[in-house]
Amino acid sequence: MHISEGILTAPVLTCGAVLTTVGTAVGLKKLDYDRIMTVSLLSAAFFVASLIHVPVGPASVHLLLGGLLGLILGWGAFPAIVVALALQTIFFQYGGMIVLGVNALCIAGPAVLCGLLLRPWLTGSRKQQLTAGFLAGFCSMLFSALLMAVALFLSDHGFLKVATIVLASHLPVMLIEGLITMFVVTFLARVQPEILSLNRSSAQ
């Protein structure tokens, strides 16, 4: 789920870097020092999620859980994801320094969008909670894969088929992300609803 260094062209890289800067700036503005500690912990948890491999068919995929982070943090998810991706670059050399803007935009953009749109549903009935969880995981992954495919296609039209393969191979991942996000959301609503900004009485 990372675009490697050296594939995209200058306009795409610039566009990604600018939008990521804007998103990060907005996210940082909305974060005060009282919440920054929890955000950094969640950012670290997001990093750890990418080390969790879940079986799918004969293979296994690693989790991303951007949608979940979006649900929990809203705009704050943007800097959190940027930081987690930067750490992944440092530790595993996934992605890279120059392409970080595009990668962060592809993952954090949909995560924040889904989080903000679906958050109101969390206060609703259990069914709404389940739907919000599933959609947050499924859609953020879907849009991430779509954005990535678009970034590849815009860089060079010859990448069209490669982008399609990338998109198609992410279909099962979307389902898993949806399911896992759904289960985590219901788990959190029961165990510690404050994380989802719910108070205990409304969750029960």
């Binding site: 912990l41 969640l42 670290a44 948890a45 289960f183 788990f187 994380i195």
Partner: peptide, 28 residues
């Protein structure tokens, strides 16, 4: 490949989140 596996992983990760959250508060 079962729903049970996915639910277990979700709960494991959910619990990790809960612990991270509480650790964050304490550290803060």
């Amino acid at each position: 490949n079962s729903l049970h596996t996915y639910r277990t992983y979700s709960h494991l990760f959910g619990m990790t989140l809960v612990k991270s959250w509480n650790r964050g508060e304490r550290v803060h």
